[in-house]
């Protein structure tokens, strides 16, 4: 299983990386939506993207709409991980094609619970 972590904060990427690696996922990172599209174009092909909303260059919402426009990326699971917690905005992200939504702050368990909910489970946890 592979995860692409998209957040403009290195601290937040580091936190998320430790969580998903601990669950046995391989990971790659991007600092904004455009960089994330570049990572996808380069062939990383993740099972799930963890996506911040507010980022410079291209925000997470725009990234989701771009991914949903490309049939090649249809099978990819998209999960927002953001401080944006207005109910209308959550509905908007889900309507645009996000599968799940985690609101910051979160505990490591919350990420694990959601991945389980999405049926994403790494087969082997590296030592």
């Amino acid at each position: 299983m592979r995860a692409l972590i998209i957040d403009d904060s290195r601290a937040m990427r580091s936190i998320l990386r430790r969580i998903v690696n601990g669950l046995g996922f391989e990971s790659a990172e991007a600092g904004d939506g455009q960089q994330a599209l570049d990572v996808l174009e380069s062939g990383f092909n993740p099972d799930i993207c963890l996506i911040d909303w507010n980022m410079p260059v291209m925000d997470g919402y725009t990234f989701i709409t771009k991914v949903r426009d490309n049939p090649e990326w249809r099978s990819m699971t998209l999960m927002m991980v953001t401080t944006e917690s207005e109910q209308k905005q959550i509905v908007r992200a889900l309507a645009a094609g996000a599968h799940e939504y985690v609101i910051k702050p979160f505990t490591p368990d919350a990420i694990a619970d959601k991945l389980e909910l999405l049926g994403l489970r790494a087969t082997e946890v590296p030592a």
């Binding site: 959550i90 889900l94 799940e100 985690v102 979160f106 505990t107 919350a110 959601k114 909910l117």
Partner: peptide
């Protein structure tokens, strides 16, 4: 709390059954 809401509640149910 926000932290409790994140634990295993599908986002579709959060927006359907909860308000801030």
């Amino acid at each position: 709390s926000q932290v409790e809401m994140n634990r295993g509640l599908p986002a579709t149910l959060l927006v359907k059954y909860f308000s801030r």
